[in-house]
Design a binder for these strands. Structure first.
Length: 155
DNA sequence: GCCAACGTTGGC
DNA sequence: GCCAACGTTGGC
């Protein structure tokens, strides 16, 4: 079982959107970065747990937990000229981009903010807190996952 | 294969 | 809205 963190802008698709989806499940489309794609396609397994992270917002941070319910399959938004994620170089016979399905589990008890996460030496190896990091999907080890999750019970 | 130009992410 | 960081593209 692996642990992950995935970023999304709450104005575009936030945790409230996921919670309101049928079956509280949605496909995680629009990943257009090879490093993120590779991890999602190769390493993300059914049952893996994922932190939902709100980016590009007033208080970026971890706001909830979701679970991978379907492993990687072609991201069809890449084939749709109407989609903002359209990529003419992705061939349906040889798709370039992939997505997984995730299901809402719960909100964390509070927004565990980036500002806060940056303070802890326990997390200094995590790409999230490194300056200029733009990875939208990143793996966490169990220690990092547990550490962040414990923070929801502090003030 | 190098690298300048350009586009995007995302914190602030 | 600004801009640093970084990924991608494409000319050579």
């Amino acid at each position: 079982m692996n642990y992950w963190l995935m970023k999304s802008e709450p104005d575009v698709f936030g945790i409230e959107h996921l919670k309101k989806m049928p079956k509280q499940t949605e496909h995680w489309d629009g990943v257009r970065n090879y490093q993120a794609r590779n991890m999602m396609r190769d390493d993300m397994k059914k049952g893996d747990l994922v932190f939902f992270y709100h980016s590009n917002t007033e208080q970026p941070g971890v706001v909830g937990i979701m679970k991978v319910v379907r492993e990687a399959y072609p991201d069809y938004t890449a084939f749709d000229p109407e989609s903002k994620y359209y990529d003419p170089k992705s061939d349906p016979d040889k798709p370039r981009w992939f997505m997984v399905d995730v299901k809402y589990q719960r909100h964390t008890r509070r927004n565990i903010t980036l500002a806060e996460l940056k303070q802890y030496p326990e997390l200094e190896d995590c790409p999230l807190v490194r300056k200029g990091n733009r990875l939208s999907i990143m793996p966490l080890n169990k220690q990092q996952w547990d550490f962040i999750l414990d923070l929801e019970n502090t003030d």
